Simulated scan of single mutants.
Amino acid sequence: MTHVGRDSSALSVHFCRCRQRNFVAAVALFVGIGLSGCVSRDVYQAEELPPQLQAPTVTNTKKLDLSGLTTVTYNNDIIDNGDILEVQILVGLNTKDNPPVMQPRVNEAGAISLPNIGEVPVRGLDLPTAESAIAAACIQRGIYRSPQVTVAMKKQRTNQIRVIGAVKNQGIYNLPRGSSDLFSAFVAAGGLADDAGTMVDVRNPSAPNTTPLDRIASGFGNSADFAQIGHSQDTPVEARNTSSTFRVDLVSATKGAGGSYNLQDGATVNVERRDPEAIRVVGLVNKPNRYEYPVGEELRVLDAIALANGTSNRAANKIFIVRQLPSQQQPAVIQTSIREAKRNGDMNLKLAPGDIVSIEQTPTTVLLDSIMLIRFGVGASLGTFF
């Protein structure tokens, strides 16, 4: 019995020593591999990253002040097709001699039709100038000698605007033409959606030029008729957008870059949707996988590691970021480290959509893995004998 026990103990020790030698050989092999690394392309250090390799700035459109997209130069008193006016003409002290109050609609030719007076062009005129135009027409056509004309805006025509893309409520909305602009369109559609981008395409159905509207010369008499009744002889100008299609960068627009954001009747507003490419987190992490890049938010290296449920090796430190640039065929490789990213915010690099974040093996991580493997192997071996 004693001899058999001695043989068993010697056999166990011999077996363990063989296992240890094998594990030590494996450690040497792994360390050699880790030290050799991979000889490849140039690697950029995070602290010396050139501007062209830096991730683009992420803009959260929900935080932009879109009030700058309102129409600030538009005159609500300018008359346009489809408007309903209220016209009152006083010709004497006796109210019976005065014609009734009229509410003509501006037709597609830009004129109103008044009983006993006929058509008077008014599109593009402001209200005081329209009063002068109607009075001048009455005098020239021999209807009244010295009429007192009052013109008021009864109801402005509304523009039908279609709003599509990354807004909360897509649809067709009726906007007063005096406030028919991008900001009003966004408000009508409930605001921008969470995945809204910064570019907006606007398509107007037509693009008339901004031209003087000399209604006096085209409709009746000359400018002297206006001077007789005390109004300016300045020729009114039609306020219209001169582009049938244009693109608006919301970031530039909200920073005061300027621009005309008027929308014509029948215009279409299309807000781009952002669908950033997912990032990949690989290497020494617990859950290597593809992860969605958040819309309108920054994503940094430590955030990506957190998405992958942390590192799988306590000694993990070295990080490679593989970034594909549109202007280059080969991707760029950027190096940083977990320790530096925790100590210095600048080293916790901002990621770009499509980046690959690789937590790399190093001699230290290989050695730690090997030690853990040896401990596991020795424990398992001894467990078979006791």
Rank of each mutant, 00 (worst) to 15 (best):
L263Y: 02
A227V: 10
D234R: 10
N222M: 03
D194K: 10
A217D: 06
R240T: 15
G258K: 03
N270H: 09
G266E: 03
V202F: 05
N222G: 10
G258P: 02
Y261D: 05
T245H: 12
D249Q: 06
V271N: 02
D194W: 03
F246K: 12
N262C: 04
S243I: 02
N204K: 04
T245V: 05
N241M: 09
M199P: 00
T211R: 15
S243N: 15
T211K: 14
F226E: 00
I216T: 12
N204T: 07
G259A: 13
G259R: 14
A253I: 05
G219D: 11
Q264P: 00
T254W: 08
D234M: 07
F226R: 10
N209R: 13
S206T: 14
T210L: 09
M199G: 01
V237D: 01
V237L: 09
A227D: 07
N262G: 11
D201E: 13
T198A: 07
P205E: 07
N222F: 02
G256E: 01
D201C: 02
A196Q: 02
S223E: 03
V248L: 02
M199E: 14
F220L: 15
G259P: 03
T245S: 14
N222C: 00
D265Q: 09
S243G: 01
E238M: 14
Q264Y: 03
K255M: 15
F220E: 02
S232F: 09
N262A: 15
D249P: 03
T254H: 11
A217W: 02
L213T: 11
D195H: 11
Y261H: 06
D195P: 03
D225A: 09
V251H: 05
D195M: 07
V251T: 10
N209W: 00
T254P: 08
P212F: 11
N241E: 09
A227C: 05
V251Y: 09
G219I: 03
S206W: 03
P205G: 08
A224E: 11
V269E: 04
S244M: 06
S252N: 12
Q264T: 00
A257M: 09
R215W: 05
A257P: 01
L263R: 02
P212A: 14
K255E: 15
E238I: 08
I216G: 01
I229Q: 02
R215V: 13
V269D: 01
R203S: 15
G197F: 06
S244K: 14
D201Y: 06
A224Q: 09
V237C: 00
L250T: 00
N209G: 10
Q233R: 12
Y261E: 04
G266K: 11
R215K: 08
Q233H: 02
N270Y: 12
D265Y: 06
D265E: 09
R240P: 00
T235A: 11
F246V: 04
A207S: 15
G259W: 13
N204E: 08
D194H: 13
D234T: 13
T254G: 04
D214Q: 08
S260D: 15
Q264L: 14
T245R: 15
D194N: 09
E272I: 05
E238K: 12
T254N: 10
S206D: 10
P236T: 10
L263M: 02
T211S: 12
A239W: 03
S223L: 13
G221F: 04
